[in-house]
């Protein structure tokens, strides 16, 4: 056991798995010598050599496209897209090929590869450094989309992603990369992809979120419990494939539902969650299922971004509204 933040955990997990499995190669922009702009891969080149951890040319389609070729030819590439906002040139490869190769070849080829990308806002960054576009990829059959929210989960989910036989987009909550530390076991463990976690049981309302907003949700819940509102908190952990059962069972118990995410509202993960609740727990509902999300706007630059980001006060207000309905 060691105390680690999310970033340390990514580094520790990559290290441990590279040691165990020499088919793993790690690359991307600034990933090798520098160890990544966030230092997630620091030390790996020194330990495993330039063959296994290296800097690539500055070209996202090339990074993902070559990873597809490598995965077909027996390797397990783990590539980094420096910010999820820069992933767009690689979409032709991710959606056009990575998601389809197994089906296209009727199972002759499959792609055990991981695309890591820090996502989300609240870090006072330049344009294209704060996006939360998980729904875009969750919409695509053949992809898996995973977002951890704690150091412990990061290790278990990242190991599961690396060992998954299909391509996984591993979106990292960069806003909380260094926010807090947790005991992370030294030993090997995985957390199943496709399973949500009930963070806290409750009986009045179900609140579902994921990734960088979980600390805000937990803070809001403390506030709400003081006022006598019992909240069941679910951390999705995996966006796709989504864990319907955990959501539906929870809402059957609480009768109320609030989804929370910083991504824009329309056509989002919360839209899918509310559909799941309506299809699976409609007759148990005491109030319309609802959500608190980013606005349908381009992520504002830092001087206006705070309006777009969700804080615990807004979650508290929304949950009270639903409980009072």
């Amino acid at each position: 056991m060691a105390l680690m933040n999310i970033l340390n955990t990514i580094n520790h997990t990559l290290d441990q798995e590279m040691e165990r499995d020499d088919t793993i190669v790690v690359y991307g922009e600034d990933v090798g010598h520098e160890g990544g702009v966030f230092r997630a891969t620091v030390g790996l080149q020194k330990k495993y050599g330039k063959e296994r951890c290296f800097d690539s040319p500055l070209a996202e389609a090339g990074i993902v496209g070559t990873a597809i070729g490598m995965a077909i030819n027996g390797l397990k590439p783990i590539v980094e897209i420096q910010f999820s906002g820069f992933i767009l040139p690689a979409v032709n490869q991710i959606i056009g090929h990575a998601a389809r190769m197994r089906n296209r070849s009727r199972g002759k080829y499959h792609l055990p590869m991981v695309i890591r990308a820090p996502y989300g806002g609240g870090i006072r960054a330049l344009e294209h450094h704060s996006e939360s576009i998980e729904a875009m990829f969750a919409h695509i059959p053949g992809l898996k989309v995973v977002i951890p929210s704690t150091p412990y989960d990061t290790k278990g989910l990242l190991l599961a992603a690396i060992r998954d036989p299909d391509p996984v987009l591993f979106l990292e909550p960069k806003r909380i990369y260094r926010a807090f530390k947790q005991e992370v076991p030294e030993e090997d463990y995985t957390i199943p992809i496709g399973k949500a976690k009930i963070v806290k049981e409750g009986k009045d309302v179900t609140v579902v979120s994921y990734g960088a907003l979980m600390p805000q949700v937990n803070e809001a819940v403390k506030e709400l419990e003081k006022e006598g509102i019992s909240v069941e908190v679910i951390d999705l952990r995996t966006i796709s494939p989504i864990d319907k059962d955990t959501i539906i069972n929870s809402v059957k118990k609480t009768g109320r539902f609030v989804a929370v995410h910083e991504a824009v509202k329309s056509f989002s993960v919360s839209a899918e969650l509310i559909s799941i609740v309506n299809e699976g727990a409609f007759l148990y509902l005491e109030a319309p299922p609802t959500r608190i999300t980013g606005f349908d706007i381009t992520v504002p630059l830092p001087r206006g971004e705070h309006h777009h980001m969700i804080d615990s006060a807004r979650i508290v207000a929304k949950v009270k509204e639903v409980v009072k309905f």
Partner: peptide, 16 residues
């Protein structure tokens, strides 16, 4: 788009 796959296949052959 296949040229990137080809580069990756070849990079893997070299690695192995």
């Amino acid at each position: 788009s296949q040229i990137n796959h080809a580069a990756g296949l070849a990079m893997a052959s070299r690695y192995k």
